[in-house]
């Protein structure tokens, strides 16, 4: 029963790693965003280390959004999506697995790169760990929420920008609790666990709402 799920997961993973895939473009964009911000706010290391977690989170949000527009569009353009609708597999699960593969290919590299980029922002080892941990828990939520936008804009030729506009408001809670959990780990008196657990809860909620809403949108999109 699960072999089709594994086949889909491996296929999506392969597609993003091979020629024409976008697995590492997201990390590169993440690096570029983090590099550009000091040019805007100045090279003051104290300031950078204070706003470091926020920079990393915003960078990860933008990098995630950037890669999402092809999540369903590539499959729609060549007729794969039609066949997936007819394949006799629950579309919600299909979406969930596609999101999982997409996260492993583009979200996980962001999490791995975060400690490295934290060096540029002069973060303490503790802050580095906290940001990485919150990103590990929070980026799946970004991918899953973004999938809704990707499904809604699947039939548009220039859906990428609209996707970002649609998804950013939905992703605000994730950003709030991600950054506040990371900040709480750095500044001692504030409890870390409360925002962190809310972040976990947001990811779990997204894992339900994302696939259900995306599947509904995809069903309507096929005309």
């Amino acid at each position: 029963m699960t072999s089709w799920a594994l086949a889909l997961f491996l296929r999506d993973l392969r597609l993003s790693v091979r020629v024409g895939g976008s697995a590492l473009v997201g990390v590169l964009f993440f690096l570029a965003v983090v590099t550009v911000i000091p040019f805007g706010v100045g090279p003051d290391l104290n300031l950078l280390s204070r706003i470091g977690p926020a920079i990393l989170w915003i960078g990860a949000l933008l990098a995630t959004l950037l890669g999402l527009d092809r999540l369903f569009q590539a499959d729609r353009d060549d007729g794969t999506l039609d066949l997936m609708l007819m394949a006799g597999r629950p579309l919600e699960l299909v979406v969930l697995i596609k999101c999982l593969a997409h996260w492993v290919a583009t979200g996980l590299p962001l999490v791995v790169a975060a400690p490295l980029l934290a060096v540029f922002l002069n973060l303490e080892p503790l802050a580095m760990g906290a940001v990485t941990l919150t990103l590990l828990v929070g980026t799946p939520a970004l991918t899953l929420i973004g999938a809704i936008g990707a499904a809604l804009t699947v039939s548009l030729r220039r859906g990428g920008l609209l996707l970002a506009v649609l998804v950013v408001p939905l992703a605000i809670p994730v950003l709030i609790f991600g950054v506040s959990a990371a900040d709480a780990a750095i500044h001692d008196p504030v409890p870390f666990l409360t925002p962190f657990l809310i972040l976990c809860a947001l990811s779990l909620i997204a894992a339900v709402i994302g696939p259900v809403a995306s599947a509904a949108a995809l069903r309507f999109a096929s005309d």
Binding site: S3, W4, L6, A7, L8, R11, R14, L15, R18, V19, G20, G21, D78, G79, T80, D82, L83, M84, M86, A87, G88, R89
Partner: peptide, 20 residues
């Protein structure tokens, strides 16, 4: 519904595994 980046056999194998 052919993915250019996959090999011919991979393309077909996927549809066999995926389609009920």
């Amino acid at each position: 519904a052919v993915k250019p980046a996959l090999s011919v056999e991979e393309n077909l194998q996927f549809w066999q595994n995926f389609t009920a």
